[in-house]
């Protein structure tokens, strides 16, 4: 009897790390599970409570008034901001990692400033800037986009620069030694090696842009993005279609991660 107890005790202590890990994972995934579950909720009666399974939300996600417009706007802004910030940020990262110029160390510190300053401060100063520049009447899509590119830029630069400085420029010299001119060296060696960093930076930029509320809200004028829409309706009740959008986003990110892994493994096999 005691022997069994002792053995069970050992088993528990032996697997303690695993139990804790599972608990932490559960803690992390619980809200996501709720989102997925609530996307199938029948809201006939009470909100914030699972009343019954339905596919109605999935079959007509746009039934919640104004939501799909907001989602579309967020997607547009997110994509454009990602392209803009990734392009500019990658160029900046190359300049800062590969060239010596006056003020490089100041630029290196400066790049962290937008990341470090509180969003509410940045948002209000942007608003002040736009208004004082005479764009008070034109606040909307363009001002949101400008703001988003600005705050995504730092993250892109930092991510790409980390990748670049981890990369030995001996590889580029080897390429040149093997008859590759500057252009070929860049496209055959530098770019493929930095590419994962650029993709990572782009994904980061998109998710930063897509869910930004504070800055967006300040410079949006009459426009409404998805986070602003959610904030607006949450004071009444949250329509289950929001959970549909959330779940769809989750599926897309899982898909991206899985695809990246498949590509990586395929390459290593080849």
């Amino acid at each position: 009897m005691t022997a069994t107890l002792v053995r069970a005790g050992r088993w528990v202590t032996g697997h303690l790390v695993m139990f804790v890990a599972l608990l932490v994972l559960f803690y992390m995934f619980l809200p996501i599970m709720v989102v997925v579950l609530m996307s199938f909720d029948d809201t006939a009666d009470v909100a914030y409570q699972f009343n019954g399974f339905t596919l109605a939300n999935w079959s007509d996600p746009c039934s919640s008034y104004g939501m799909c417009d907001a989602v579309a706007k967020s997607l547009q802004i997110g994509l454009l901001a990602t392209v803009g910030a990734t392009l500019l940020g990658t160029l900046m990262a190359f300049a800062m990692a590969r060239h010596h110029f006056r003020g490089r160390s100041i630029a290196n510190v400066g790049i962290f400033l937008p990341m470090a300053s509180p969003e509410i401060v940045m948002g209000s100063s942007l608003l002040a800037l736009f208004v004082s520049a005479g764009f008070a009447g034109q606040l909307g899509f363009a001002t949101i986009l400008i703001a988003h590119i600005m705050f995504c830029l730092s993250f892109v630069v930092v991510a790409v620069k980390a990748r670049l400085s981890g990369m030995d420029n001996g590889l580029e010299q080897a390429a040149m030694d093997l008859y590759a001119n500057e252009w070929q060296t860049f496209w055959r060696v530098t770019f493929p090696l930095v590419f994962p960093g650029i993709v990572g930076a782009a994904l980061l930029a998109f998710s930063l842009s897509f869910d930004d509320y504070i800055i967006t809200n300040l410079v949006a004028g009459q426009s409404q993005t998805f986070p602003m829409y959610v904030w607006g309706v949450s004071r009444r009740e949250i329509p289950p279609q929001i959970n549909v959008i959330g779940t769809a986003m989750l599926l897309v990110s899982i898909l991206v991660v899985v695809m990246a892994e498949v590509v990586r493994r395929g390459r290593n096999r080849a």
């Binding site: 030995d168 001996g170 590889l171 010299q173 080897a174 390429a175 040149m176 030694d177 093997l178 590759a180």
Partner: peptide
């Protein structure tokens, strides 16, 4: 470098 008919085996290999 790419115009020279010279190739190097680098001390740290520098393989891609």
């Amino acid at each position: 470098p790419y115009k020279r008919p010279v190739n190097t085996v680098f001390q740290n290999y520098a393989l891609f």
